[in-house]
């Protein structure tokens, strides 16, 4: 089992903030828009260092999406920042018409996704956003796993022309991917090679998948671990290559099992290489208030849940 070291817990949103500040220095076309959550989105440095390119929109997310779409006309690259819930469900029609259908180069950047938002509860814990966004034609959907990867993704999406949904979160989590990584949109990252089961994880569940693989190794089970940071376009080649070897798969995500990464993997398998699959995801439910770790345990979104799902899916081979 390949060893990964946590260089210290950090929040993914701070990776976004650091990436934005760097983009502010390196790309004069990058502009940031925020709907009254500058601190939460870690956009303070961008605002301070590039005030002429920072747009405080107020609590008006629909207007923010429209302004971002308009700012692309004339060559700017707008990054919008608010919570995942207000970045997607609240403004779905604005994104659909003014961004996706109009093919505007807008980067919709969403923090506080999923249960790990914690105590604020289900009104803010969106678990449907990946599904909403991946259904939009032309939309790229990215869910990063740690600080370093979120910073790298932020830099990468500025270079890519087209609408992007970039999803990250609130809590401080393990930071274990390389600081100098090259982020390739649509390219899966093989974290560990194994033969008995493929674990495909995205976002905060990637670190949990690595912990699960270690536990499985102790039980004599060899798990292959793939980090899918880009849910759309999905790296089907990497997924099929792995599952053809292992014969079964566990998908893991902080999202509803309807519409998430797991369903995209299931479709890929159904069309190409049917194989048993278990879903580590929320099961068509809303979240609730609580400490993030306890919520992840209650809703079975952690390493222990991935171990259980792996043992179950192997038996179904």
């Amino acid at each position: 089992m390949k060893k990964y070291t946590n260089t210290g817990n950090k929040d993914t949103r701070s990776g976004f903030g650091a990436g934005m500040d760097e983009l502010g220095k390196t790309n004069e076309n990058v502009v940031a828009l925020c709907a009254d959550l500058t601190g939460s989105l870690k956009l303070g440095d961008f605002q301070k260092n590039h005030p002429e390119r920072f747009f405080q929109i107020g609590i008006a997310e629909a207007n923010m999406i429209g302004i971002a779409a308009g700012m692309t006309i004339g060559g700017k690259i707008p990054f919008t920042g608010t919570f995942a819930n207000f970045s997607t469900g609240r403004v779905y029609d604005q994104i659909r018409q003014s961004v996706a259908y109009s093919d505007k180069n807008v980067k919709i950047c969403a923090s506080h996704a999923g249960l790990t938002l914690g105590e604020d509860g289900a009104t803010h814990q969106i678990l449907e956003d990946i599904g909403l966004m991946k259904m939009l034609p032309g939309m790229t959907v990215i869910n990063t796993c740690d600080y370093n990867q979120t910073k790298a993704a932020t830099l990468a999406v500025a270079e890519y022309k087209g609408p992007v949904y970039l999803r990250f979160g609130r809590p401080k989590v393990a930071n274990f991917t390389p600081e100098d990584q090259k982020f390739e949109i649509g390219k899966a990252v093989l974290l560990n090679e194994g033969n008995d089961v493929t674990i495909i994880a995205t976002g905060h569940l990637v670190w949990e998948a690595l912990q699960a693989a270690e536990e499985l190794e102790e039980k004599g089970i060899s798990a292959e671990v793939i980090n899918i940071h880009t849910i759309k376009p999905l790296d089907e080649e990497a997924i099929l290559k792995s599952i053809k070897k292992t014969g079964c798969v566990v998908t893991a995500e902080e999202h509803n099992y309807l519409g998430g990464l797991g369903e995209s993997v299931a479709r890929t398998l159904t069309q190409n290489h049917p194989a048993p699959q278990e879903f580590v995801a929320t099961k068509d439910t809303f979240g609730e208030s609580g400490v993030p770790e306890l919520l992840m345990e209650k809703y079975e979104l952690n390493a222990a849940a991935i171990v259980r799902a792996s043992e179950k899916v192997i038996k179904r081979k």
Binding site: V31, E52, R53, F55, A62, N63, M64, I65, G66, I67, A68, A69, G70, M71, T72, I73, G74, G75, K76, P78, D93, Q94, R96, Q97, S98, Y101, S102, K104
Partner: peptide, 23 residues
């Protein structure tokens, strides 16, 4: 810009106006 679903055009225009000023 696409339009048809109502109420979105002014926001888009403000964005284009912002970019004109930046440019």
């Amino acid at each position: 810009i696409a339009s048809g679903s109502l109420g979105q055009g002014m926001s888009v225009a403000i964005g284009a106006a912002n970019t004109k000023k930046l440019n």
